[in-house]
Amino acid sequence: MKNKENQMKLYLPSLSINESVARSAVAVFVAQLNPTIEEISDIKCAVSEAVTNSIVHGYKFCQGEIYIGVKYYSDRTVVIEIKDKGCGIEDVKLAMTPLFTTDTTGERSGMGFAVMQTFMDNLEVYSKKDKGVRIVMEKKLK
């Protein structure tokens, strides 16, 4: 990835209104690299999914803080880290299965991780029950 060129750190309370704040802020930061419309759209969507997961699942029972870190490197790799201190995921592999959701309202599609995986080049999810979730995703821009 060569040298780190720039970075942004953002902390937001887990309010659903901040889903658009998070993805827009990341989009503005990444815009420095002159990404294509598709690249920026992919990144916004992946960030939206991760932040929504923290709000809907991680902080289901209490409000908390979400960390959003973005870095880019001289080879145009963008690395996005999203962390919460919520209830965590017991079985990460199961949670990442397309269409799997713990939601019972029938309004969540279970496609959040699938979107992150498809729209980014690399996705890593670290979590333990009651220990929050840390997501690191990468995308190399053209």
Binding site: C45, S48, E49, T52, G106, S109
Partner: peptide, 16 residues
């Protein structure tokens, strides 16, 4: 201009 997977839930729910 923007939709994430919440939109999929919205679409499938209204389809139902």
């Amino acid at each position: 201009e923007f939709m994430d997977s919440s939109g999929l839930g919205l679409i499938l729910g209204r389809f139902n």
